[in-house]
């Protein structure tokens, strides 16, 4: 037993900041991808969730605590998206430098202006986020702004690699701006088109591309769609030109399928985060896919 403890203490010594490269704990794949873009091979990135999971409803699993225990930097989305589990993970991890308020804790939503800031905070309105809608990753401009702040934070935390982080970031941001121009141009035919959303996960996306929202399957954010609301939505949509009903991959298909069957509007699965590889290719493929899927259903 004492030998084991000694060994463990030795490991502890080795795991101190003397080791090169940051260990990043990202709550969402898009923030993990940004950290990987910035850090490339100099960082280790762990992503706590994936596209098939609802980032609101994650449990503070032991595996997450173990990863947070070893992280040098937590990249959280913020705006209360992870309020149900991240505080519990951080409090159990016993890792001082990544606690909120410390340099090792980074919040993406704190870097940009948020949409849909509620005028009143009342749970009768559903799962409201007092700071505003947290799904900022779906706006590539905001994503860029978050990355700009993130690479500065990473450079500050790991001065030895700062030049690498800065070079990686400036190269990426040039490519990303070109990609934004390409997407904006391709998506021009979508401007003014209406979509129905399952959950209010897309306001940043619709605003970026000039789409409008004709309705939501969830009458209240985060509350499962009810049949009365769906029926009312069907009636309200009658005769309206609507491009698609969109749902995040983690949301149940049933309600959208029902509405699609009733109205003839196609149901689309639009990922709310990076679905493929958690890196630049994944980020690019994510936006390519969002736009391709919508364009394919343009009428």
């Amino acid at each position: 037993m004492s030998r084991f403890v000694l060994l463990a203490l030795l490991c502890l010594g080795l795991a101190s900041p003397a080791q090169a490269g940051l260990k990043v704990f990202a709550t969402l794949p898009e923030w993990g991808a940004l950290a990987r873009v910035i850090g490339a091979d100099s960082v280790t990135v762990f992503v706590a969730t994936h596209a098939l999971q609802d980032p609101h409803h994650i449990e503070a699993r032991p595996s997450l605590i173990a990863r947070a225990r070893q992280a040098d930097l937590v990249v959280a989305n913020g705006a209360d998206l992870e309020v149900g589990w991240l505080p519990a993970v951080l409090s159990a991890a016993g890792n001082g430098p990544i606690q909120p308020g410390q340099p090792g804790y980074f919040e993406a939503a704190a870097q940009v202006a948020l949409l849909e800031v509620p005028a009143r905070v009342d749970r009768a309105d559903g799962d409201v986020h007092p700071a505003g809608n947290p799904h900022i990753g779906l706006d590539p401009h905001r994503l860029l702004a978050v990355g700009t702040a993130l690479h500065e934070r990473m450079a500050a935390l790991d001065p030895a690699q700062a030049a690498v982080y800065r070079a990686n970031w400036s190269a990426f941001s040039a490519r990303w701006q070109l990609a934004i121009a390409r997407w904006t141009e391709r998506a021009a035919p979508l401007r003014g088109k209406a979509i129905v959303v399952h959950h209010t996960a897309y306001p940043y996306f619709t605003r970026w591309l000039g789409l409008t929202r004709a309705g939501a399957l969830e009458a209240k954010a985060g509350v499962a769609p009810g049949s009365a609301h769906l029926a009312a939505l069907r009636d309200a949509l009658a005769g309206q030109p609507v491009l698609a009903i969109v749902r995040p991959p983690y949301a149940p298909e049933g309600p959208g399928q029902w509405l699609a069957g009733e109205t003839g509007i196609p149901l689309l699965r639009l990922p709310t985060t990076v679905e493929q590889s958690v890196d630049e290719a994944g980020l690019t493929a994510w936006f390519d896919e969002l736009i391709d899927r919508l364009l394919a259903h343009r009428r």
Binding site: A113, V121, P130, A131
Partner: peptide, 18 residues
């Protein structure tokens, strides 16, 4: 767009403020 509606984003994003 970013210049206009920027009501001090950092504190606004802190949901625990209230």
């Amino acid at each position: 767009r970013q210049a206009a509606p920027a009501p001090a984003p950092a504190p606004a994003a802190d949901g625990r403020r209230g």
